[in-house]
């Protein structure tokens, strides 16, 4: 059982959680992720680690409510628990001194890009951050990003905050105005694909963090396979970071739509009575705590 010690909204449908997970907090590095299962009947979903405090034994994740599990998770508060949290999984992002780096992120992708941007800065790079969202309500972690960036550009599709426009438009201007050695893009697949299309002809090293569907997260099932350079790679163990110019984004998008119909069904079930689902989760996890206490007392006797 993994206790939530802090839970607060960051933006519309985006919530930040600080979770007690001492083992993971000691080992995690930027770019890595965890797999969460909320309760006994839950699915396993991957979530990128946004931050960690090894002394407090906690990790931070930011969750955007898009499916049943993330919607239900975002109803949880401090004091609630997650039944299963495992990690850190995946390879850490490659951090070295590249020179001038641009970190492009969209919406909740900012939470995933932020720790890598911070490490890039620590490694002596010039960090230019481009943060985008559809609208002001969906922006998050702007202050945190500003604090670790030499330049920060904030854009919204509808112009409700910052510049009006797409992150790729701003990236294009930056690429035209000077030398860029490294680009990281984290966000929706169309955005990552557009970034790859901009930088590939220029030969700029560009990394994307892929959000494939996963089950175990340790290489056992192969469900997260993506075509990279026409070869099958597992996002969970070979990634999640890949060379953007080599990734087949069409197949990634196709595979991420594989369970569209079931996802719709699950969301409908949740929305029919969200409070009942939340109650069920809390009761089910409380039972686990009781069972655990009973087992411990039996062992100590």
């Amino acid at each position: 059982m993994f206790e939530i010690v802090e839970a607060r909204p960051l933006a519309q449908n985006i919530k930040l959680f600080v979770i007690k997970a001492p083992r993971i907090s000691r080992k995690q590095k930027p770019g890595q992720f965890i797999i969460v299962r909320l309760d006994d009947s839950g699915e396993r979903i991957p979530l990128t680690i946004a931050d960690a405090d090894s002394e407090a034994g906690t990790i931070t994740i930011c969750v955007q409510a898009i499916g049943k599990t993330t919607m239900l998770m975002n109803m949880l508060e401090a004091g609630d628990s997650l039944l299963d949290v495992v990690g850190p999984l995946g390879k850490p992002s490659e951090i070295e001194k590249f020179g001038t780096t641009v970190v492009v992120s969209g919406s909740v992708g900012t939470a995933m890009a932020y720790p890598t941007a911070r490490e890039l800065k620590h490694a002596g790079n010039k960090v230019i951050s481009i943060v985008g969202a559809r609208s002001k309500d969906l922006l998050c972690l702007e202050d945190e990003v500003r604090a670790v960036s030499d330049e920060t550009y904030v854009l919204t599709d509808d112009g409700t905050y910052g510049e009006k426009g797409l992150v790729t438009e701003r990236l294009k201007k930056i690429l035209e105005s000077g030398r860029v050695d490294y680009v990281l893009a984290v966000g929706p697949i169309p955005m990552m694909r557009a970034v790859a299309q901009l930088t590939a002809p220029l030969g700029i090293k560009t990394i994307v963090s892929l959000n494939s569907i996963m089950v175990d997260g340790t290489g056992m099932c192969g469900g997260c396979r993506v075509l990279v350079n026409n070869k099958s790679q597992f996002a969970c163990v070979d990634g999640p970071d890949f060379d953007a110019s080599q990734v087949n984004f069409e197949i990634l998008m196709q595979r991420n739509n594989m369970y569209r119909e079931q996802e719709r069904q699950s969301i409908e079930r949740l929305q029919a009575d969200p409070e009942a689902e939340l109650k069920k989760l809390r009761e089910s996890n409380a039972q686990h705590v009781c069972a655990l206490e009973a087992a411990l007392s039996e062992v100590s006797q």
Binding site: S41, G42, E43, V215, C221, Y259
Partner: peptide, 21 residues
């Protein structure tokens, strides 16, 4: 491995009572 993990470990044969599709 994936098919059996979804069906056995994740109880996908009992979807939507269990979440894993």
């Amino acid at each position: 491995n994936e098919f059996l993990t979804r069906v056995n470990l994740m109880r996908a044969y009992r979807f939507p009572e269990y979440d894993e599709p």
